[in-house]
Nucleic acid binder design. Sequence first.
DNA 1: TAGCAGGAAAATC
DNA 2: GATTTTCCTGCT
Length: 307
Amino acid sequence: MEFTVALDSPLSVDYTLGSGQTFRWKKKGDAWYGVVRGQVLKVSQEGEALKCSGSSQAVDSGFVRDYFRLDEALDPVLESITKDDQIRAAVERFYGLRIVRQEKWECLASFLLATNANIPRIQQMVSSVSMKFGDRVEFEGGEFFSFPGPGRLAESKVSELRTLGLGYRAPFLKHVAVAVTAGGFDLEAVAKLSYEEARDSLLTRLLGEKTLLGVGPKVADCFLLYSCGMAEAFPIDVWVARALAGRYPRLIGAELRRRMARGEAAKISRRDYYETSAAARKHFGPNAGYAQIYMYMHARSGDEGSG
DNA sequence: TAGCAGGAAAATC
DNA sequence: GATTTTCCTGCT
């Protein structure tokens, strides 16, 4: 059943679903197909309206509005981060890009898999895991697969995960799946903490002898920003680091700035990461995460600029 | 705390 | 076709 969602706040589906915050959407013609909460969702944008359909009754306008956070006005958020001409250019160029409300477990697992990989590869890994362990969902005569719950992956064998091309990430995924399933690490509870408490919990809480393996500050920030609604989280990947180095040298720690100025690869130490992301949160404010994703898109789109 | 390995695929040369 | 890079983290 097809239905229409009228937009009362700006949204660009293309920018949003093409921004690298999710890994499960594909565009065919002018329609995007994705799997959200175990259901297939098809969306195509026609100006101020979204034409939608889904694989079950559960997919309705409330479902779509929730996923795209249409209950939150975008303009005030963008105004709040537009502190200078650099970010203004990115905001104008990708106006309508929103941060969606991802499922927590899928988001954490996806960004755990994202280390040392590019977007096509991440999409492939997430897709392989879904095809192997997720549930099959039919839609428009095609087959889709849900992202498997942590319980399903907790019962998997690391060797099985390795056959999916996950490499060294395989044991990390299994470890975190076990922690979330039976190890007492409650993602819903973490989402209710303050940003600092939540990040601290993700990075330092011991589960037996270890913390969550494969979850460092970058993965934690992505999880908190993209699935927990913590808009102040400011994940720093290589693209954002480069953009900051070129346009916001003041926000980068002196030593990192020196290394990057020498043209060395953007190897960000944990200390660099904390310093820089704290400075970025201070500069851009409580919606710094939006600044981050606009900056990321701008940098990846090849318009680096010289600042 | 700095340096390095890690697995594989995409970009780039 | 070979090399470098890739939305990083864990271990020593």
